[in-house]
Design a protein around this nucleic acid. Structure first.
Lengths: 228, 228, 228, 228
DNA sequence: GATGAATGAGCATTCATTCAT
DNA sequence: CATGAATGAATGCTCATTCAT
């Protein structure tokens, strides 16, 4: 009752979309989740390029063949992981901007971003590593960045702030640049693990980032750091 | 730092078949250069991951076997290209800071960086693509960024500017962040070729960058954009 | 000839888990028949080589695992289908030869053969495709052809005709050749679906075949085509 | 100088046609020929379905990888073999028809066909085995049969014979059927190696075939067998 | 110095079949 | 009896690298 799928799949003209069976039983769902977790942890340890399907299956306690019951190939698994990632992060870092306390709220949001990035550093690494050779991945990443940048420029242009923002700067451009700064800093720190970068207290980095951000675009002069 | 090997081997009297020695004749040097150029152009066309040793040799007018007379292996070629790249860029973007016209001089320097990046986008792409799986490449990149950041923080802390810089910001941290912003923006624009990003006038981007930079760290309030 | 195995196993009291016994219940028999029908229709649609056990089970409304309750393996299913086929066709094309109207009765018999062949073209295709790599299948096919040829030569040598048949031709040999002609023509037409062949009216083909046949072996000169 | 090919090949949009390098040196040409011979002999021994690329390479004295220098895959090798086959046979069996001695000349031609078929039985087997699942092979075979049939009907309709041929038979149809008879007989004898069939003297089979052929279509009554 | 032939290790993928539940 | 998860053995193919000539 769950197998008529098999037919459709082999039909060479129709196929292509079917991403391997959605597991029907709880056990299957668990296995699928285990594969995804195994992949992420292996990517973290060795980097995408050094992980084989057999490794992933092995860590998930399966044989290679079983892997293909859940994903058509390593690429599909990767896409799945990255799609989840970009959706999650967008939800995760949402923090209401407090107009009276901009530095604090931007700092908090940045801090959450860093936390998330660190936890999933392996996947962010994959995004960067594959974007050049894999169009689909490039698209996922681009869409994610774009959503991110829009949110930033949206927040900045909201009424309460608008008056304080310098008029000689293109807001979209500024949003892209400020976003770039954050993302690349995180990449160096959590993916490349540059020791110089990693040596800095993360909290200070978040706050500096927020400060530069706001000062960089505000009309009224340098933004005061409210830390006592 | 990883090259003593090559030197030892150049001693032609020791090993008859010593491969990949630094070529002694001008013709040999030329061939070596041709291989490097071929590699870079192929990387630009198809991306590193889609280029084979045979392709590179072919474009350089050689057979595969001949390639190994000039490089011990594919990896060495890559390292060589990237080393050259990071040395060159450092020289290339040197622009004296004019304390009276900070925005202009930072804009100019940024613009030069972008020009160089664009011209060698393929190699910057390689740097990013391989850094996670190749320690040596990661080191080259890290060293390059570090040099870059030091120069920034050095310039900023030079006497003439010091007074204008806000004291509540860690200069090194700021330098890293501002550098990150520039590099990642270039990566999106020239390597990923994100159309949204690429649609912006490059000159405006350079100036905005410079403006954000300086405002982000200056003590005296937003830096005026001197564009008429 | 290769089946004693199945019989021994049906003894339900001996082996608890005995798989692929002849199903005892009507429902079981029906399922088995459904699997066979599913297989034949899939072979017709995609060709034997492109059909998986999972596909067959799926179309029969079963899961893969269930398939093995009805057949010990894929091979057994195939053999079963082909055995049935060769038995049926032999029954099906039996047409009494009318000595006074040879061309007509041979035409009729040929026509029936073609009808049957077309209806089961998928299975005839399987026979041809597998005979070279599967001894058992080769045997089934050979036995079937042999039965066929004997019937032909038997019919021809029956008293009423004997006098009209040329004596310088080995009847067995002739029967083989005439049978070959019919079978291979059907194969081209219904399995390979050669458009040139398929364009000819089937009735004409049957009659031409009959005419060649009879003329080819009769002593008395060309056999008249009795079509008005 | 022989390698620029490599470049074009990786270009995913252009490729597809390039059938792996034509060997540049005599040694390479020899190797290529050795691979083809190895394949044919293995097909003869085990049947196409039971021969792996590794087997072919092994018998040719090569590693698996080397195979791919000469053929893009097993399929291409097979096509090459079959194309050669169908060209050769067409040349090989050309025998001038002697109008005064039809039975003899048709017998001779048939005999040559059988000789050739036997020598290359493995490849004819491949043709039959794969035609159903491989369109390209089906086309090669169909084209070959068609050429064969046209030659037959052409020869039959030539002036000197025309008057002797019965008018109530469609010549093309007849040619197809007579050709089918010959081919399928050969298939049973040399590929399936049906012992009953193989037991017959080949010379007799050729002559019977010729006799049935000519009698089947001639207007003037049974064709006399000129054998003493 | 160059050619092009050959190597060989690696990896992804497919499916018939088995088995725990 | 059925389910669907898991097995595991095959095998095709790619390329960086080596080597005989």
């Amino acid at each position: 009752m769950t197998q008529p799928r098999a037919e459709g799949q082999t039909d060479a003209t129709t196929v292509a979309a079917a991403p391997a069976a959605r597991p029907a039983t709880p056990k299957g769902r668990d296995t699928r989740a285990r594969i995804m977790a195994a992949a992420e942890s292996l990517f973290a340890e060795r980097g995408y390029a050094n992980v084989r399907v057999a490794d992933i299956a092995g860590r998930a306690g399966l044989t290679t063949g079983a892997f293909y019951r859940y994903f058509t190939d390593r690429h599909e698994l990767t896409l799945e992981l990255l799609r989840d990632l970009t959706v999650e992060i967008f939800e995760f870092i949402r923090v209401p901007l407090d107009a009276d306390n901009l530095v604090d709220s931007v700092t908090e949001s940045t801090q959450k971003y860093f936390d998330f990035y660190e936890r999933h550093r392996a996947l962010f690494g994959v995004l960067v590593e594959l974007a050049q050779s894999d169009t689909e991945i490039a698209e996922i990443w681009t869409a994610s960045r774009r959503a991110f940048y829009s949110r930033i420029s949206g927040a900045l242009s909201r009424a309460s702030l608008a008056s304080r923002i310098r008029s000689d700067v293109n807001l979209n451009l500024a949003a892209e640049m400020l976003g770039s700064m954050t993302e690349f800093y995180a990449f160096q720190r959590f993916v490349l693990r540059d020791p110089d970068i990693a040596a800095q207290p993360l909290a200070e980095a978040s706050r500096t980032l927020a400060t530069i951000w706001l000062s960089g675009i505000s009309a009224g002069g340098p933004v005061a750091d409210s830390t006592p």
